[in-house]
């Protein structure tokens, strides 16, 4: 019984982190993926901040949906409620970290406000509801999705640091070559589809 549910959780985690990677096959959170991936260090910070926020947001939105919205029969308001919850949560996390963990705040600080408009956060919260995950499953799904984001943004940043030294055809400099890199990474991630 317990091993069954653990197995189920592992399948959810593997499929949302690798097989249907949040950026490369679901296309959530492309703005930070393309915008904040110039350097490995900043990309790493962004990835960690996203893991932190998505896991928390999955928990809070799961609780609110199951115990408030669903009970009152106003599930159709979930978009409005979730986006407000996420915005408030990000504000709260920012204030909390500033007071109790200045070190972590220093390293994540600048990325936190950006995360409100990262559609991976809202997307994960809505997917959890759509797939009828329990709260635990939702949190695991959120953590794994964000982990997938962290993996892919770090790989892209590593490649982009090298791309700077290459002689790229002029029209492709800037965004096009980054998109092509992401496309090649997406092909590589297609290889995971036989995993389960």
């Amino acid at each position: 019984m317990i091993s069954e549910s653990i197995k189920e959780l592992l399948i959810i985690a593997a499929s949302s982190a690798l097989i249907s990677n949040v950026v490369l096959s679901q296309f959530y959170g492309l703005c930070p993926f393309l915008g904040v991936s110039k350097q490995l260090k900043t990309a790493n910070g962004m990835g960690l901040a996203v893991i932190f926020v998505i896991t928390l947001a999955s928990l809070v939105s799961g609780l609110i949906y199951n115990f408030v919205l669903d009970k009152l029969g106003i599930g159709y308001l979930k978009t409005i409620v979730f986006i407000l919850v996420i915005a408030a949560l990000v504000q709260f996390v920012e204030m909390f970290l500033k007071k109790y963990s200045p070190g972590l705040y220093e390293s994540l600080g600048v990325f936190l406000p950006l995360i409100t408009t990262n559609c991976a956060v809202l997307g994960t919260a809505l997917t959890n509801v759509q797939e009828k995950y329990t709260i635990l499953q939702g949190v695991v799904n959120g953590f794994a999705t964000a982990g997938g984001f962290w993996i892919s943004i770090c790989i892209l940043a590593g490649i982009r640091e090298k791309i700077k030294y290459n002689d790229i055809p002029k029209p492709f400099r800037g965004m096009p070559i980054v998109l092509i890199t992401a496309g090649l990474m997406a092909i590589a991630f297609c290889g995971f589809s036989g995993l389960l």
């Binding site: 490369l24 296309f27 492709f172 965004m175 096009p176 070559i177 998109l179 092509i180 992401a182 496309g183 090649l184 997406a186 092909i187 297609c190």
Partner: peptide, 8 residues
């Protein structure tokens, strides 16, 4: 992957 290539 095609989406990335076409946009690029």
């Amino acid at each position: 992957p095609g989406a990335f290539f076409v946009l690029a």
